[in-house]
Lab assay of single mutants.
Amino acid sequence: MPSETPQAEVGPTGCPHRSGPHSAKGSLEKGSPEDKEAKEPLWIRPDAPSRCTWQLGRPASESPHHHTAPAKSPKILPDILKKIGDTPMVRINKIGKKFGLKCELLAKCEFFNAGGSVKDRISLRMIEDAERDGTLKPGDTIIEPTSGNTGIGLALAAAVRGYRCIIVMPEKMSSEKVDVLRALGAEIVRTPTNARFDSPESHVGVAWRLKNEIPNSHILDQYRNASNPLAHYDTTADEILQQCDGKLDMLVASVGTGGTITGIARKLKEKCPGCRIIGVDPEGSILAEPEELNQTEQTTYEVEGIGYDFIPTVLDRTVVDKWFKSNDEEAFTFARMLIAQEGLLCGGSAGSTVAVAVKAAQELQEGQRCVVILPDSVRNYMTKFLSDRWMLQKGFLKEEDLTEKKPWWWHLRVQELGLSAPLTVLPTITCGHTIEILREKGFDQAPVVDEAGVILGMVTLGNMLSSLLAGKVQPSDQVGKVIYKQFKQIRLTDTLGRLSHILEMDHFALVV
């Protein structure tokens, strides 16, 4: 994948999101292997301009796509893939009243899908469409860049269908997702969380590099694949309309690839034109409109599966009536509230959605109805927002919020430890010299600072030695090549209790 991002070429006709291997024109390309080798690009942008032909009021008969309808489940399912879809609609009884809503608040519980998330729908649909058009064949390999849930859905379907599955996901995604993927037989590649989507090191860039190296491999490409919004247009939206008897006044959905909100909203605009569509985008993402909503100094966020630093091709923002931004604290607070007060075992993005819903639905009156999409299960986040310690460490809970008995030293300040200034190293000294210094002084790690004293990161003896043994660096290389740029900081005025929580999850903390 090139470091400079080429513009994806656009073909003359058809839909841009065809499933299957992508040609340089962004659509299915038939021909000899030699032709494909000559024409197939190194990668295709996940934010390529959409060429979708959908228009409100256009006859369904003019759609270029294969459409399906929700099917009634048999008493005995032939395999677990038949437990994807037909998820329950559940009334939220307490939270709406707590925040003064007059309307009825309903939750579409997508964590009841077989793999635990709304992404099971698009995973199965992308595979079925690729099999139907002859792209996927027995023994082929599926590769997908994902925040985890699409990966789980694909790995689940691949396990049943017999495909090899490789999932490329950023490091910030939970260990629970990784464990589930491994249990399903998927191979996992992790990428830096802070890598831009168009960087060769991003999950998108690495996935395309693997595709170019592995024979008979395919990126189904949830960011561009029409099967993504079509899955929701054909099934999720129809289920909502049936469950609500066609009567709903507002739908609120958090947005990642945009397939969920695009597919549902398009069908609702056709069948229930008075329904307002509300999009939820986390602070630090750029999906919301108008652009002024996205202006923030924050560039990272903890909530998973929603928000991006690019506009995915499948996201149709014209069908969203209003956007709201959400933050991590309210997302996790509301997710825990949904679990504790409503018994809905949902993930953090569901918290984002409901946090926005109780604001947006203030305009609705008694007798009206708001539906929220709860995308995934708490299963993926047992060591994250479900953990009091994690919430404390991230600053989303305060010590006084917890009532468990603490040891005698818990409320003492870090400054009472009488710490001395640490050994520091410059980023320009060599790895070999740094190892000598650390061994001589008896230290395992040291902060790396520039000549102005600005902290650049941390270097550890173990990481340097393993990097040297693996051949990633040489003793003569500058130590700046092996620094940890993500590390926890703590102030002298913070409590030892807070430091204790940090050290339970990290090997060190830097006192500043």
Results as ranks from 00 to 15, higher is better:
Asn216Tyr: 08
His65Lys: 07
Ser147Thr: 04
Met169Phe: 02
Tyr163Leu: 03
Met250Trp: 00
Glu4Ile: 10
Leu251Glu: 04
Cys15Asp: 13
Lys25Gln: 15
Cys103Gly: 13
Ile261Trp: 01
Thr191Gln: 01
Asp249Glu: 06
Asp47Gln: 07
Gly14Lys: 09
Val168Met: 07
Thr141Ile: 13
Glu187Arg: 06
Tyr233Asp: 05
Gly162Lys: 00
His232Met: 00
Ser199Trp: 02
His17Lys: 04
Pro273Glu: 09
Glu62Asp: 15
Pro145Arg: 00
Leu154Ile: 04
Glu270Val: 13
Pro46Gly: 00
Ile152Ser: 01
Lys108Trp: 00
Ala71Trp: 05
Glu34Val: 08
Asp133Gly: 07
Ala107Val: 13
Leu210Met: 08
Met89His: 01
Gly151Glu: 01
Arg125Met: 06
Leu136Thr: 08
Asp140Ile: 05
His65Trp: 01
Arg196Cys: 08
Arg190Trp: 02
Arg190Val: 07
Met126Trp: 03
Arg276His: 11
Ile142Cys: 05
Ala69Trp: 05
Glu213Gln: 15
Gln242Asp: 12
Gln243Tyr: 08
Ile152Tyr: 01
Phe197Gln: 06
Arg190Glu: 02
Ala8His: 11
Arg276Lys: 11
Arg266Cys: 02
Val189Ser: 06
Lys102Met: 09
Lys25Val: 07
Leu156Arg: 01
Thr146Trp: 01
Arg18Trp: 14
Asn149Ala: 05
Pro16Thr: 08
Val90His: 00
Thr236Glu: 01
Val90Asn: 00
Met169Pro: 00
Leu230Cys: 14
Glu4Met: 03
Ser123Cys: 04
Arg45Ile: 09
Leu28Met: 13
Asp198Leu: 08
Phe99Val: 06
Asp120Ser: 07
Ile122His: 01
Ile166Asp: 04
Ala69Cys: 13
Ile44Gln: 15
Thr5Gly: 09
Ser27Gly: 13
Pro192Asp: 07
Asn225Gly: 00
Lys102Cys: 09
Met126Ser: 02
Lys72Ser: 04
Arg182Asn: 04
Gly26Met: 07
Gly100Met: 06
Leu241Val: 14
Met173Ala: 05
Val255Thr: 09
Thr13Ile: 10
Glu29Lys: 14
Gln7Lys: 11
Asp140Thr: 07
Leu251Ser: 03
Glu110Asp: 07
Phe111Tyr: 09
Gly258Glu: 03
Gln222Ser: 01
Asn228Asp: 02
Gly96Glu: 10
Gly31Lys: 11
Leu251Thr: 04
Gln222Met: 03
Pro215Ser: 05
Arg121Tyr: 01
Leu81Trp: 03
Leu77His: 04
Pro138Leu: 15
Thr13Gly: 11
Ser3Phe: 14
Val118Phe: 07
Asn113Glu: 00
Gly151Thr: 00
Ser19Ala: 15
Asn93Asp: 10
Ser199Leu: 06
Ala195Asp: 02
Gly20Ala: 15
Gly85Asn: 06
Tyr163Cys: 01
Cys109Asn: 08
Met173Val: 06
Cys165Phe: 04
Glu34Ala: 05
Gly14Asn: 10
Val204Ile: 05
Ala186Asn: 01
Gln243Arg: 11
Lys102Ala: 13
Ala186Phe: 00
Ile214Thr: 03
Pro21Leu: 13
Lys211Cys: 04
Gln55Lys: 13
Pro46Ala: 04
Gly162His: 07
Leu181Met: 06
Tyr163Pro: 01
Leu81Ala: 04
Ile240Asp: 01
Thr260Ala: 07
Gly185Met: 00
Leu241Ile: 04
Ala38Asp: 12
Ala155Glu: 02
Asn228Arg: 01
Met89Arg: 05
Gly162Met: 01
Gly85Phe: 04
Thr5Trp: 08
Gly14Ser: 07
Asn216Ser: 14
Cys52Gln: 00
Arg196Ala: 05
Met250Pro: 00
Gly258Ala: 01
Lys94Ile: 05
Ile143Gly: 04
Gln222Asp: 02
Ala69Val: 13
Pro215Gly: 04
Ser3Pro: 04
Arg209Gly: 09
Lys137Phe: 10
Arg276Tyr: 10
Trp54Gly: 06
Phe111His: 01
Phe99Tyr: 13
Leu181Glu: 01
Thr68Lys: 11
Ala158Pro: 02
Thr87Pro: 00
Asn113Asp: 06
Thr141Met: 13
Ala158Lys: 02
Glu9Ser: 05
Gly26Ala: 03
Asp179Cys: 12
Lys94His: 13
